[in-house]
């Protein structure tokens, strides 16, 4: 046991695992940030009005429904094989990034939509009657009120998503899970390796989860505080 521990906790192995942690964090961050932007665009497209924009609305709805319904692994392999068809030596990192962005955009679209819908419609109607264009209503009235609902949910999703990135290892993408598997392949004790991987995932997820809770209570609290007349 002591020997196994000593074999695992070498500077080289820890550096290797840390690179995995960094990649997991990078994938999560890229996914969630682009997801937030993509999700906003999808939610905005879905809330469009008029017959002329119906194809945009339908397109956004189909995208969101499809990518929310299929397993991430399927999305990953779809992107992998499509990428390899176009570019035989497609870099795996970008395959993972694209897959993650598709998934995150679809999920974030629903989070952003729920946030935007939390703003009372009469406020929007009032702005419409004042001849305010829709993009401006969204920008200066809806989003400044919706972010309080969006942010905690987005962080909660991020926590869940950290775990999903582990699936990228199935396509050969280097991240924390992949690093763990690589260490096991080098002959290190699997139990110890994956226990360490577990701790690393926990170390990433737990502070994020706490941040989500803190944001939720803080934003709600600030609202009621100002609400006292």
């Amino acid at each position: 046991m002591t020997e196994n521990l000593a074999n695992l906790f070498t500077f080289g192995n820890m550096q290797f695992l840390m690179r995995g942690v960094a990649m997991t964090l990078l994938l999560t961050l890229i996914g969630c940030l682009t997801g937030l932007i993509g999700g906003f665009l999808l939610a905005y497209a879905r809330s469009s009005k008029g017959n002329l924009l119906a194809p945009v609305r339908w397109g956004a709805m189909i995208f969101v429904e499809v990518f929310r319904r299929i397993p991430f692994l399927v999305t990953l392999f779809l992107v992998l094989y499509t990428a390899q068809m176009i570019l035989p030596r497609a870099p795996l990192f970008w395959v993972a990034v694209i897959s993650i962005c598709l998934l995150c955009s679809a999920y974030m679209a629903e989070i952003v939509r729920a946030g935007m819908e939390s703003v009372p419609t009469p406020q929007i109607e009032t702005a419409e009657v004042m001849n305010m264009p829709r993009w401006r209503i969204t920008w200066i009235i809806v989003l400044p009120q919706a972010w309080k609902v969006i942010l905690p949910s987005a962080v909660s999703y991020m926590v869940m998503f950290v775990k999903d990135t582990a699936l990228a290892s199935q396509a050969g993408v280097f991240e924390l899970m992949f690093a763990g598997k690589a260490l096991v392949n080098r002959g290190l004790d699997p139990l110890l390796v994956f226990a360490t991987v577990l701790l690393a995932y926990f170390a990433i997820s737990w502070p994020l989860a706490r941040l989500g809770q803190w944001l939720e209570t803080r934003l709600a609290h600030r609202h009621t505080e100002r609400g006292i007349r």
Binding site: P120, P122, Q123, E125, T126, A127, V129, M130, N131, M132, R136, I140, I141, P144, Q145
Partner: peptide, 27 residues
Amino acid sequence: AAIVFQQYNLFQNMTVLDNITVTPVKV
């Protein structure tokens, strides 16, 4: 034409002054 509703419908994220000036200035 302007309309005023039962539930006031002020923009909750803006101050009183901004509620009044937002449309004259931005629109």
